[in-house]
Design a protein around this nucleic acid. Structure first.
Length: 535
DNA sequence: CTGGGGACGGGGCCC
DNA sequence: CGGGCCCCGTCCCCA
C-alpha cells in the first residue's frame, strides 16, 4: 500500500515536473514570439512614420509647385512677346499624364551594387509621376534661328526621392539629417546613398554631406539676402528645385563633387570616395551669356553639376529672345573620373551605359557643347552653356547618351536632321526628336533606365509595355509562329523570320576581309573580331 | 579539348 | 500596340 502511495506520489511529482517544464517551455516560446512580434510591430511603426513623412513631403511639394506655377503663370502673362516660355506640358509633367500601367521600377545594372540582384527596385505607383523633360522647338527652323528662337523645356515634377529610398530609408531606421533648404524648408529624408540635389540656380551653394547612414542635402541659395522671386529666379524657371528628380542611381559609391566658382562658392558633397571626385573650375569669364538683368548670375555657380545627381541651370537671355528655362544634367554615379568605363558588368544592362567619351568621340556631328566635354577636357562648364551657340537649346545632350545605337539614330533622326517640323520634341539627353512628348517619355527610359513594366511572374522589368507582353510568352509557352518547312515553333515572328534563313540559306552579311557570309550580323561581327581583328 | 560557327532565346528599342 | 531589327548570351555541333 505504501509502495502504491509512494508510486503515486512519484508519478504525481514527475507529472508536476513535466507540467512545469512544459509550462516554462510554452512561456518561453510565447515570450520569444512576443518579442519578435513586438520587434516587427516597432519596425512597422517606423516604416509607417517614414511613409507618413514622405506623404507630408509630397503634399508640401505639391502645394509649393502650385504656388510656383501660379507665379510662373503670372510672370508668363507679363513676359514680353518675344520671350515665351511654353508651359503646356506642365500639367502632364505633374502627373496628369503619368504612366498608369504597372508599378514603376528602376533596373540597375548588375555589378557593384549592394541591393539584391533579384529584387527590382520598385517605386510606389502613387508616388511616381511621369517626368516630362522635353525640349520643344517652337519654330521649324529653330536650328538656324539663333536669336529669337523660342524654346522651352518643361520639366515636370518627379518624385525626387530615388526609388531606393523607399527600401532603405525605413529599414535604416536612422533619422535623416535634415537638409536646410531656405526656400523649401522641407526636411528631405534621404537614403544613405550619395544623392545630391544640385540646383543650377545662380549662386546656389550646395553642401551635401554624406556619411554611411545619412545624407544631408543642403540646398541653399545665396543671393545676398535677396529672395529669389525678387531676383527673378523663379521667373527664370529656376525654382528651388521643387521638381528635383533623380535618375536611378546605379551605383553605390559615394561621390565627391566639387564645383568651384571664382567667388569661392563651393559645392562640396563631402563624399569620402577619393576615387570619384571631380573638381570643375568655373570661369565666369567664359560665360559669354550676357546676363545683364541678373548680374549675380555671372558669378559662375549656375552651372553646377554632379554625378549621381543632376543640376539645373537657368538662363534667360531676354534680349535675344533666347529662353532656356532649365537645364538638367544627369550623370550617373560610378563613372570613373575619366568617364571611361562601363556601368555594368557585361550584363545586358551594361550595354546601355557605354563609354561616354567614346560616345562623344563617335558623335562628332553633334554641334552642341557637351557637358561631358567639360568633364573630359576640364573645360569650364560654361562652354556648354554658351548661348552664342545656335544649338544652345541642346545644352546637355549626350550626357547620358550611352547607347551608341540610340546615339547614331539620334544623329540621323533627331531634330537636327532637318525633320524638326514633325519631330520637335527632343530628348534632353540625346537630342533625338520625336513627334509627341509621350514618345520622348518612352525614349528617355533608354537613358534613365526606368522600367515601369514588371513581369508578375519573374519580376523582370521592361521599359515598354509591349516588351513585357512579349516577355510573358516566355512564361506562357505560347508559340504562335510555326515554320511551314520544319514545324518548328517560335514565340515571335522575328524569330521565325530569322529561323527561316536556315531553310533559305540566305546569308546577307558578308565579311569584307574574307568574303565569308553569315546569316546574322552578330555572327559577322564575332567572326571579324576573332579573325580579322587589328588588335 | 578547343575554337569557330550555327541556331536560337530573349531583351532593347525604334518605327 | 505590334512589327521589326539589333544585340548578347547560351547551347550545340563539328573540325
Amino acid at each position: 500500500m505504501d509502495n502504491c502511495m509512494g508510486f503515486h506520489t512519484q508519478i504525481a511529482s514527475v507529472m508536476e515536473v513535466l507540467a512545469n517544464a512544459a509550462v516554462a517551455e510554452i512561456c518561453k516560446l510565447v515570450d520569444d514570439d512576443y518579442a519578435v512580434f513586438r520587434l516587427e510591430m516597432s519596425q512597422s511603426q517606423k516604416e509607417n512614420r517614414g511613409l507618413r513623412r514622405k506623404l507630408q513631403l509630397l503634399e508640401l511639394k505639391v502645394s509649393r509647385e502650385r504656388a510656383e506655377r501660379t507665379i510662373r503663370e503670372r510672370v508668363l502673362a507679363s513676359r514680353p512677346s518675344s520671350v515665351k516660355i511654353l508651359d503646356r506640358y506642365r500639367g502632364m509633367a505633374k502627373g496628369e499624364g503619368h504612366l498608369t500601367g504597372g508599378h514603376r521600377s528602376f533596373v540597375k545594372p548588375a555589378g557593384h551594387n549592394t541591393w539584391r540582384d533579384d529584387q527590382p527596385i520598385t517605386v510606389d505607383e502613387g508616388s511616381g509621376t511621369s517626368t516630362q523633360e522635353v525640349i520643344v522647338i517652337e519654330s521649324a527652323d529653330a536650328e538656324a534661328a539663333g536669336p529669337g528662337v523660342k524654346q522651352e523645356r518643361t520639366k515636370g515634377e518627379k518624385e525626387p526621392r530615388h526609388s531606393r529610398d523607399i527600401q532603405t530609408e525605413a529599414a535604416a531606421g536612422v533619422a535623416p539629417t535634415v537638409a536646410t533648404e531656405d526656400l523649401a524648408a522641407v526636411p528631405q529624408a534621404r537614403t544613405r546613398r550619395s544623392i545630391m540635389e544640385v540646383s543650377g540656380t545662380p549662386n546656389a551653394v550646395l553642401k551635401s554631406e554624406t556619411d554611411t547612414e545619412t545624407l544631408t542635402v543642403t540646398h541653399r541659395l545665396l543671393h545676398t539676402g535677396s529672395d529669389p522671386e525678387r531676383l527673378g529666379l523663379w521667373r527664370l524657371g529656376c525654382p528651388p528645385s521643387p521638381g528635383s528628380k533623380y535618375l536611378p542611381l546605379f551605383h553605390q559609391s559615394q561621390r565627391t563633387v566639387n564645383s568651384r566658382g571664382d567667388d569661392g562658392d563651393t559645392l562640396d558633397t563631402g563624399g569620402d570616395d577619393p576615387s570619384c571626385s571631380y573638381t570643375t573650375e568655373m570661369d565666369p569669364g567664359n560665360i559669354s551669356l550676357d546676363l545683364e538683368t541678373q548680374t549675380d548670375l555671372s558669378r559662375g555657380d549656375w552651372n553646377q553639376y554632379s554625378s549621381s545627381v543632376y543640376s539645373e541651370g537657368c538662363l534667360e537671355k531676354k534680349g535675344e529672345g533666347l529662353v532656356v528655362d532649365e537645364v538638367t544634367v544627369k550623370l550617373e554615379g560610378d563613372v570613373p573620373p575619366t568617364w571611361k568605363g562601363h556601368l555594368g558588368d557585361g550584363h545586358s544592362q551594361g550595354r546601355d551605359f557605354l563609354d561616354y567619351r567614346e560616345s562623344l568621340e563617335t558623335n562628332p556631328n553633334v554641334a552642341t557643347h557637351s557637358l561631358v566635354h567639360a568633364f573630359k577636357d576640364h573645360d569650364p562648364v560654361s562652354t556648354s552653356m554658351a548661348p552664342s551657340d545656335s544649338h544652345s537649346h541642346i545644352l546637355f545632350d549626350q550626357v547620358l547618351n550611352s547607347n551608341d545605337r540610340a546615339t547614331a539614330q539620334a544623329q540621323g533622326g533627331g531634330a537636327t536632321s532637318g525633320n524638326s517640323k514633325e519631330k520637335r520634341f527632343l530628348c534632353m539627353f540625346c537630342n533625338k526628336g520625336f513627334s509627341c512628348p509621350q514618345k520622348v517619355e518612352i525614349h528617355k527610359r533608354v537613358h534613365t533606365g526606368e522600367k515601369p513594366y514588371s513581369c508578375t511572374q519573374c519580376h523582370v522589368c521592361f521599359a515598354q509595355a509591349g516588351d513585357l507582353k512579349r516577355h510573358q510568352r516566355v512564361h506562357s509557352g505560347e508559340k504562335p509562329y510555326s515554320c511551314p518547312q520544319c514545324d518548328k515553333r517560335f514565340s515571335r515572328q522575328d524569330q521565325l523570320k530569322r529561323h527561316n534563313m536556315v531553310h533559305t540559306r540566305e546569308r546577307p552579311f558578308a565579311c569584307m576581309h574574307c568574303g565569308k557570309r553569315f546569316s546574322e550580323r552578330s555572327y559577322l561581327r564575332i567572326h571579324q573580331q576573332k579573325n580579322h581583328s587589328t588588335q
